[in-house]
Design a protein around this nucleic acid. Structure first.
Lengths: 217, 217
DNA sequence: AGTGGATTGGGGTATTTACCCCAACCCTGT
DNA sequence: ACAGGGTTGGGGTAAATACCCCAATCCACT
């Protein structure tokens, strides 16, 4: 049996190395490369063509989902496993949209990660229990269940764009300038975002955006 | 030579186990226990009396500094090493006040952690370069340098209290009600906080409070 | 062809914020 | 005894926010 070739992506050298050593306990795994951010992960991935990419998401925004999507478009066969300490619906949804084969909590023991790797390498999926209860399968692809969608009420692209500016403390006038729109339009988007999220002031909005990983604190 | 007995505290099972395996590469280290949060760490520490405690700080507020302080008061000889992916002045200051012997960034390679462990076990200290530039030594104990203190300007108790409410999105009127004070007083505190921190809107204030661990996102 | 959602924008208003001024009071340290 | 910092509050103003109303455009879906 051939080894499952693994690429690790995590911005913490300590965690990265530690995971690599851990996975070396399984003879069927071979960690062929590591990268310290999603961008580097993309480059290394196309170069090494691993079977499975284990990608840590937590800190620096949503670029990892972006990178994952681009990786999948170039290497259709690669399986992506997301590791996270947060289980926000937005993360889960983005991961699923990016074509993740697995999503698991960092709190799980290494055995679970090993199982997930074997599972996805064989063409399957793995999702932690808390996540499985929030997603639905359809034609072999997964998406957020409606219940969860209601919780992470679906914001449109434009709304999310405005939300990110709002949550960084820009005034509506400033945002209007940046987006080449009327302040009144920003006002409209802002009001609809607040309505959808049932949030009624900017501070709560900012905290929401931080929790959902839309911006850093 | 006797082994250095180590206790690992990290809320991610994956990271915890991975670190343990990593440290097993050094014969002079013995990981005698692990805990998944600061509270459990306190209990395990008094039970096992390790030489060194490696404690991860990132997520759940400031309890770890609290726990660290209590551990130090019960086991004066134990050395505490903090791991963090953030280098906020408030964290550093809290860690130093709690009696940390080392503080290092998670981005460092495992060798650096090993070095730090050896160093503190021998009675020394270890701080990453970025940190060493921000702290000063005095009579064997360390504290934040004035420059850094200027950046994390010293807020009074009352100011911090008001800041925490402000950062949670309460209006000044609501805060005044909660604290049995005039809205004008809250206004005064708020203005002084913004002045000291050189922050000019509530959203930035909230993000500051979240970064500093004063509130959760 | 027509419905609906997304995007864009305007009018108006009440509340809240940020910022300026000022001044008591109390407590602590010299 | 006196200075200085912390805490408490007031008056006033300009800006920003939250929230209500409404409507034109455009694009996709059936």
């Amino acid at each position: 049996m051939e080894a499952i070739r693994i690429l690790l992506v995590d911005d913490h050298a300590l965690v990265r190395e530690a995971l690599a050593v851990q996975l070396a306990n399984w003879v069927e795994f071979e960690v062929v490369g590591m990268a310290e951010d999603a961008g580097a992960g993309l480059n290394v991935a196309v170069e090494l063509k691993p079977d499975v990419i284990v990608m840590d998401i937590d800190m620096p925004g949503i670029i990892c989902f972006d990178a994952a999507e681009r990786i999948k478009s170039r290497l259709a066969d690669v399986k992506i496993i997301f590791l996270s300490s947060a289980l926000h619906d937005h993360y889960i949804e983005s991961a699923l949209k990016a074509g993740a084969s697995a999503y698991l909590h960092k709190g799980e023991p290494t055995e679970t990660l090993a199982m997930a790797i074997r599972e996805v390498a064989a063409g399957g999926n793995y999702f932690s229990d808390e996540i499985r209860s929030r997603i639905v399968e359809k034609d072999g692809s997964y998406s957020l269940a409606d219940g969860a969608k209601l919780r992470s009420k679906i914001l449109t692209d434009r709304e999310i764009e405005v939300l990110r500016y709002l949550a960084r403390g820009l005034t509506k006038k400033e945002i209007a300038g940046l987006m080449h729109l009327s302040p009144k339009t920003i006002e409209s988007h802002s009001a609809r975002v607040m309505d959808k999220l049932d949030i009624h002031d900017r501070v709560e909005l900012a905290r929401y955006a931080i929790r959902e990983g839309l911006i850093d604190a």
